[in-house]
Amino acid sequence: MYKIKINERFVEFPDAPKLMEVRAKFKPDADLVIHNGFPTPDNLLLADGDSVVLIRKGEKPPKDELEALITARHTPGVTEKVKSARVGIAGLGGLGSSVAIALARVGVGELVLADFDVVEPSNLNRQQYFVDQIGKPKVEAMDENLRRINPYVRNVLHRVVLDAKNIPEIFGGVDVLVEAFDTAEMKAVLTNAMAGSCPGVPVVVSSGVAGHGPSNTITTSKFSNNYYVVGDRVTEAAAGVGLMAPRVGVAAHHQANCVLRLLLGECGSESN
């Protein structure tokens, strides 16, 4: 028997089916046919274990299919692995808000989000909030935005000023922690607190994301066992050197991809 996953349901076929036969049988009006994460117009011969997602553009899918359709373009195997993961994000500013959105889109099962602040106008040049959210606590605003993107992610919210004592308490149980603070002092506090109390938790820290210097000077590198550093390690936010969406976003997505690679068990070399 050939077992094919069609819009998240397994269907068995006695002989290897062809892709367009599956479309004709299960959703003849589908105008998007995605085979193992990749859209194709070709009438491919399917193999046992293949995944097929059939989408009619503009149609709101039934609730029990939506989750599978959201992740239809994922590399096969990714969804299952990240769905059971819990990731912490310390700080929901320029880095943290973009990391949270990337990880919600990829379908991480649970996000533990901590920030004390409210959304204010100068955040909007780089942080993933909206004008009508000004004044709202960032944890609440981000929870709203994430649920609009992927309602299948659980968000655990902590509106709190983080410090050396509560960081290990809040984040001790996560699979990976993202440091997304603004100040150098807090970046150091988090690194030292987690290394002391939770040395088994991988941490992705950031340093050097300001300005509009070259994107390619931002790297992901290993600092210590379980510690990864994203940024150019040099360019500090200061009078005359601002923080803006493009370069902060490059760094945030380095962090998010490092998290994804850690969850998939693909990190570990010197450079990532």
């Binding site: 700080g91 500013g93 320029g94 880095l95 943290g96 997304a180 603070f181 603004d182 100040t183 150098a184 002092e185 970046k187 150091a188 690194t191 820290v205 950031s206 340093s207 050097g208 994301v209 300001a210 600092f223 210590s224 550093v229 940024g231 390690r233 040099v234 360019t235 500090e236 936010a237 200061a238 923080l243 902060v248």
Partner: peptide, 10 residues
């Protein structure tokens, strides 16, 4: 030793 000196911004 590896010494990582953080700079601010995020």
């Amino acid at each position: 030793l590896e010494v990582l000196s953080f700079v601010g911004g995020g």
